[in-house]
Amino acid sequence: MILAVAQEVSYVSNSVGNDAASEQLRQPRPDKVQSQQAVGRRRKPADKRKTLEILFFISPALILIAVFMLLPIIQAIRFSVYNWKGFGPLVDFVGLKNYARVLQNEVFTDAMIHNLIIIGGSIALQLPIGLGIALLLNRKMKIQSLLRTIIFVPYVLSEVIAGVIWFQLLQPQYGVVDTIMSKLGIQGPAQGWLGTPELALWTVLAVLTWKYLGLAVILFLAGLQGVPSELYEAAEIDGASWWQIQRKITIPLLGPTLRTWGFLSMIGSLQLFDMVWILTGGGPANSTTTMASFLVSEGTKRQNFGVAAAASVVLFIVALILAISYQQFVLKRDSQPDEDRTKSKKVKV
């Protein structure tokens, strides 16, 4: 989840960064043009010294990534073809048997389905609600910045803290959620929201929505600020209603923001672990297991390192497939036509 945000930020500021660069240099693609110019301009440099400088600057980061990121990933692929309980050397080569064990395991295939439900549910809930709140807040209000701060609070709390609080709120019968509902005449489920297998996953989804809605609102609001106000005024002069303006102007212009947000929300949902581990531990009856919680419990509780490694490779492949297809089918729309839109958004008056 944390990484998802990180990515989010990187995407957003990446594009904005480039925009700013192009504004400053008044050149359409700063990276390319700039580099060509520089190559042309620079006199024969002391090549050896330059190479040393580059190595000096880049290698610490690359070494850290190689040791703590690449090496473990390669190891995961290696472990996944051995039957290994964590003791002694890797000798019991089993080929793809671990993969078969993972993919034939109903707990894991259910976990995959749970991940997909969380992905779809998060977007289906946060997109309309977040967009609605952002559109409502996108006006001159004295308390706008205060509201933004408040809405962002759940996002800053760790999933653990949010999870522990909600776990208490959702206690069967004497938890505050059930108390309030019973005052309204609704009886909460006897086993509790998190204790009933049919409800647990949806309850987790609701808590996740509470936690991540603020991020969606903040990002959408940031995107809305890029829509020039003249467009609204022009539309109002033409007699467009508030709703027509939102539908025909605001939401289409917000497209790139929405699509980028959707991508990061998806990646975050795929890695879901903390919240599930705190709220349900994957239970009851494995009704809330995710791929990540499956591989952690296989690896650390049962010491099935081979199986856990196979599961993590599967998780990565699923993430990769989803990321590439999202890129192909959704984000692709941003590559050509929206570049013009971004530019038009930047027009200053």
Partner: peptide, 17 residues
């Protein structure tokens, strides 16, 4: 590309390392 690799994927080998 590093953005695409969450720590979760490599968590078990990372723990061993």
């Amino acid at each position: 590309l590093g953005l695409l690799f969450p720590a979760t994927v490599a968590i078990v080998p990372l723990f061993i390392l």
